[in-house]
Amino acid sequence: MAVDEGKSKIELDRLRQIYYIRNQQTRGLEEFVALEEFSLSIREGTFVAIVGPSGCGKSTLLDIIAGLTRSKGGGSIQIDGRQVTGPALDRGFIMQGYALFPWRTVQRNIEYGLEVKGVSRKERGEIARKFIKLVELEGFEDRYPNELSGGMRQRVAIARALAYDPEVLLMDEPFAAVDAQTRETMQDELLKIQSKTNKTVIFVTHSIEEAVLLADRVVVMTPRPGRIKQIVDVTLPRPRTNADMRASADYDVIVRRIWELLHDAEIPGAVDGAATGGDIADEIVPSTIL
């Protein structure tokens, strides 16, 4: 497992999340462990992607870091050495469903966090315009979300989270709801935005390709309970774009390695960690697994 050097931004220490589910037969409560022994140290400015099968607790993890859910099984979160006790403006949360306020225009949506922060009206307007420009939505300031396409809504959501200048961005499958073409554009734009703003990002996704394209480190999780299976460092040079990655052999190797890590967790009898990047290609027959 890779050990971080330099200044640590986020320290996740043995996070554990349990839910209680009522058993239909016995009527008793059963413990369901969503997240187990999750420890991770993230350096400032690092882009971390989290991939794993459905139900591995990826979204739960983000909710806990955002302060929206308490980790009932213990563990702690520190950002810059400060304990996280609830939601605050040092973290920006971007959800899959955009969650824009439909009664607010683009501009007023982006200003929301600034209002919470107590920024004056004049300054709010200036900051919002700056971020509208960053996500290339000039001319749409006075539009309502229902007048925008999915990709544009997601850009508003990103601008809204960036506007109050959080130190950490938490992104929960933000591009899952847009079409494939828009997704690629959004990914390229996110890469550009991240290189401009140098935010620390935790990005949850189902897509291995997306994780490798965007991240410096990819955290691969196991299904129920969600634990860290392995952390894969993505050493591909930046700046990256979708076009670059399509032509990169290293990219393919890393994608394949993560794919293999994810899938031997699901195939009974697979030898854990037996294969390495080079020789697994022959063994992968997607149709037998999917």
Partner: peptide, 22 residues
């Protein structure tokens, strides 16, 4: 929409503001 409440709360919105703005 609970997602809107979640979004507002993630920005540290208190109960009173949540009621008024969401």
């Amino acid at each position: 929409d609970p997602q809107l409440i979640k979004a507002a709360r993630s920005m540290g919105t208190g109960s009173l503001r949540l009621f008024g703005t969401v």
